[in-house]
């Protein structure tokens, strides 16, 4: 739900001193609203996350460019529906190992918040059907398998001791197709098994 409006400079004015002013509109309401932090700015993006934080509404945004005494017509986005269109980030993945097991703790990504002090809202609260696709790669056997889970705690037991396993996890929500963002691959080794060392 971090919603950033981006645009390109007008044709032929790359590098020129062009300032931009952004306004946004809540579909079905009556007025264009402005955002003070994005009035007469030089950069070509504007963070509208706070303005579009009610993800059940749909929004438009418009940008006007001013160059010297010239003022452009406004360029307008299509209708943006955060609930359907936002990308779902990967969960946080914490791995702890034992001789023959790896515990995986998944923490759902959080909804964007303006003030770090605000209480967090987990994407799990917004998307009750959020699932995780966990991929496990056994480096020694060169085998990969996966699991689809909804809970946030997973124990892979009966693993081979002293073996490197790599894990990456993608969150997904059944519904309209969304770009998946898998987590970084994390690799851990199961501990050595003293018993087998004695044989």
């Amino acid at each position: 739900m971090k919603n950033i409006l981006q645009w390109s400079p007008p044709e032929g004015l790359q590098g020129a001193e062009v300032t931009y002013t952004v306004r946004y509109f809540i579909y079905g309401q009556k007025k264009w609203l402005s955002k003070s932090e994005c009035r007469n700015i030089l950069r070509t993006y504007c963070n509208l996350s706070a303005e579009t934080s009610d993800y059940e509404h749909q929004y438009y945004a418009r940008v006007k460019a001013v160059w010297g005494t010239n003022c452009s017509k406004g360029a307008q986005t299509g209708r943006f529906y955060p609930f359907l269109e936002t990308r779902i980030g990967p969960p946080e993945v914490a791995l702890t190992t034992d001789k023959k097991s790896i515990s995986i703790v998944l923490t759902a990504p959080e909804k964007w918040k303006k003030d770090p002090e605000e209480s967090s809202i987990s994407m799990q609260q917004i998307y009750s059907n959020l699932k995780y696709h966990v991929s496990i790669y056994n480096a020694k056997a060169n085998k990969t398998w996966s699991q689809c889970v909804t809970n946030q705690m997973l124990v892979l037991s009966w693993l081979e001791p002293d073996t490197l396993y790599c894990v990456h996890v993608a969150s997904f929500v059944p519904g309209p197709p969304r770009l998946a963002q898998p987590s970084e691959k994390q690799c851990v080794s199961t501990l050595k098994d003293p018993a087998s060392a004695l044989k």
Partner: peptide
Amino acid sequence: VRNGGVPVLLETAEP
């Protein structure tokens, strides 16, 4: 099992 075409863990079995 939701989708085919990928290896899926069915069970952690006993030796």
